[in-house]
Design a binder for these strands. Structure first.
Lengths: 168, 168
DNA sequence: ATAAACTTTCATTTTTTTTTGAAACTTTAA
DNA sequence: TTAAAGTTTCAAAAAAAAATGAAAGTTTAT
């Protein structure tokens, strides 16, 4: 396998994976492309390499920047904007965790709290509902806290975590 | 808010969340419904409550059973099949982790290994590619190992993990 | 002030994913 | 065995998500 083929395979795979994880294909592909580029890439080049439209490129880049995992760069004396990806993997994981917590976990917690707060006076069915949703609330809250803690350790949290688990 | 409303809100929310996590809406809704039901539910009832077709119900239930988070139950003297969800949340998390590892992480690792194995003799660009994909391989492998370890502890791994992190 | 170089927006189209429903299949009991 | 009660399958339809591209908007240099 030579370079171009490998690069393409990587970008495609990452794209497919992304769409299973709630990030859309193009976003994941652009991110993949930037991750393995040794220098900043222009929108023009991204469009060219991934064969996507200008609009798509623009919106996907915006979304990636909103996630905080892609940055804009200006080259001295050039009008055109260039893009780079967060390449530090710990940092990347931290940013993705934070963003998903904010977008998905926090709203879910809110709903869980609400629905588990109904007064379950009458039936067994209602009691079970309240019980189960309360448990779920606690569980999700705990999981979210773990994520948050992890993001505080930043550097190399994953290695540390692995060591802890293997030792135990 | 009364029971029916709360239940509906929960099912809808869980459904929406599911689709952000790679499980489709109906699957997540059925799972939610079963989670908060105090007794096994028939396919007929699921169709009725979620207003979905028989085909959809059948396929979604099959998928949930493949994931190992919904079970079939037979009631003595009855032809009809009933369904229950895994209600233990630790167990649920374990099963979901295992399944996602198998379906998504393992195949991704395979590709990463492949593409990082090209001989990067010539350009800086190629060297950067190999370097970055190798790092990614290590990172994903480590993350997958952590998941695996966690699933070995089973009961209450989340609480333990949280304690460790808070203490430190 | 203006025009060139570039980016963003968003209504429309395309693609992908999900759902339907009717036919085929399976199981059980009489 | 057969018919009733139930389940599964899968081609087609519907819905949802993503991508396009042209027009509108910005910015910069002159």
């Amino acid at each position: 396998m030579e370079f171009k083929e490998a690069k393409n395979k990587f970008v495609q795979t990452w794209g497919a994976l992304g769409s299973q994880w709630g990030i859309n294909k193009t976003m994941a592909q652009i991110h993949a492309l930037l991750m393995v580029s040794h220098e900043a890439v222009s929108m023009e080049d991204i469009m060219e390499e991934l064969q996507i439209s200008r609009g798509n490129a623009s919106m996907s880049l915006r979304a990636l920047m909103d996630w905080g995992i892609v940055y804009k760069e200006y080259k001295a004396g050039e009008r055109r904007e260039y893009f780079t990806a967060e390449k530090d993997l710990d940092e990347l994981a931290v940013k993705i965790s934070r963003e998903r917590s904010k977008r998905e976990i926090k709203p879910a917690l809110k709903i869980l709290k609400e629905v588990s707060a109904i007064s379950a006076n009458s039936t067994l069915e209602e009691k079970h509902f309240v019980n189960q949703t309360k448990k779920l609330y606690d569980f999700v809250l705990k999981a979210d806290n773990v994520l948050e803690k992890i993001t505080e350790y930043k550097d190399n949290w994953l290695a540390q975590l692995l060591v802890k688990f293997v030792k135990k």
